[in-house]
Write a protein that binds this DNA or RNA. Structure first.
Lengths: 226, 226
DNA sequence: CTGCGCTATTGATGATGGTCAAGCCGCTGC
DNA sequence: GCAGCGGCTTGACCATCATCAATAGCGCAG
């Protein structure tokens, strides 16, 4: 399916595309295809030939690695308005991780060929892609920092704060995906997530199902630091 | 100081430069300066204007973040034959982390200007830099995976295995930096590192000062997995 | 040689995350 | 309604990591 005008609006707002002008964006979108995913579905596996990259229009996608025994490690969860796998196209030309869409997601897949083509002829395009990869790099480094320096409960707090956004005072929102996934995202087990959420109640965090109420976002932010 | 022919040889073997031809490499190296660091020394701080990137010719450099209280979190340690901070030049144009060279290191600093210039006019350059950033991305993702999926002792084992290289059977080598740094590198405290090393003795790992003897690299590799 | 400073180790202790196992809740389909 | 299922929670237990504190080794300067 071709992108609707609404889809294009979202695409143009992604970090990658927002650095491009109209003509550059349209060149990339030639051959782009949009798809809705009613159910969970494997998008690609690690080692697959990387001939597409993606923009999440709705819902989310999780990137993960699998151990030999089949245990999965979540590397990253990509939410709406972000592109991913653009990096895999260069370098090895293979996806380094597995990707699975959550049910209800909507993605656009973009061919690698026009991108590689544009890179050859258009230096502005190169800068845009480089900037996009740098964003990734920053995110990953920040993630490493959190994993090394913060206790699981603090990482959870950080996760909630980032969901709450810029609000100060009270925030109410819903978890963007199943708790099992949230736990994996933070790097703990589902059991620990339950307990961590219970402990955060003292700091004014209530959870009912996937609805979270943070009574004092500032207090949570402070807790993230120590 | 200008790069010696030996320096240039090392530079040309880095992932970034090996994708470039002679002329492209020389264009980048215009204005490059080599420096030996007798002592530890801060190279740049997070937030500094990113107007150079670096290649490690000898020794190593550690990239780290600082908390408000001054606690440091090691993000990565860069060894000889690798470039770093090339990503910081795009995107925000500021270094995202602090960098400190270890005593005895030798680095070459390369101006951002010729790189940005070359990117505009030379699409091959863009591909080389993109590939280099992708390598980074892979490393960082692998690191996240290890932090999430492996216990500290396993991470230590992995670290030793990666130092041992492709050998099978016995390997003897020296730790490339102080144990405190090794501990930070794998995300544990120095105390835990001591104990973890002691426990690895059962698997045939002996340490005397910074000399490590691994009697059966294969066994260690197996231990990394579980 | 001696003393200082830094790094590494060792010990004791407490907190907490993982694991295994059981129970609960909410949904779906019959 | 009820059974069954998946996801979530709870509990008990154990392993282990961080912390704090003390000690031991080592290099170096005087």
């Amino acid at each position: 399916m071709l992108p609707t005008p609404d889809d294009v609006t979202i695409i143009r707002r992604t970090p990658l595309f927002s650095a491009l002008d109209e003509a550059q964006a349209m060149a990339l979108l030639r051959g782009a295809r949009v798809r809705d995913y009613a159910d969970e579905s494997l998008l690609f596996s690690a080692g697959d030939r990387a001939d597409h990259f993606y923009v999440v229009l709705r819902g989310s996608v999780r990137l993960f690695a699998l151990s030999e025994e089949g245990d999965e490690t979540i590397i990253e969860v990509i939410g709406a308005g972000n592109s991913f796998a653009e990096g895999a196209i260069f370098g090895a030309g293979r996806y380094p991780v597995h990707a699975e869409v959550f049910s209800g997601a909507r993605l656009v897949s973009i061919n690698a060929a026009p991108l590689l083509e544009a890179l050859r002829s258009d230096s502005g395009m190169a800068m845009a892609v480089l900037a996009s990869l740098c964003r990734w790099q920053l995110n990953l480094m920040a993630e490493i920092r959190r994993l090394k320096a913060q206790a699981p409960a603090q990482r959870l707090a950080w996760f909630l704060v980032s969901l709450a956004g810029d609000v100060s005072g009270e925030a109410v929102f819903r978890l963007p995906f199943r708790k099992t996934i949230v736990a994996g995202r933070i790097g703990i087990t589902p059991e620990s997530l339950s307990r961590a959420l219970a402990r955060l109640a003292e700091l004014g965090v209530e959870t009912k199902g996937d609805i979270v109420t943070v009574h004092d976002v500032e207090a949570l932010r402070a807790f993230c630091r120590g």
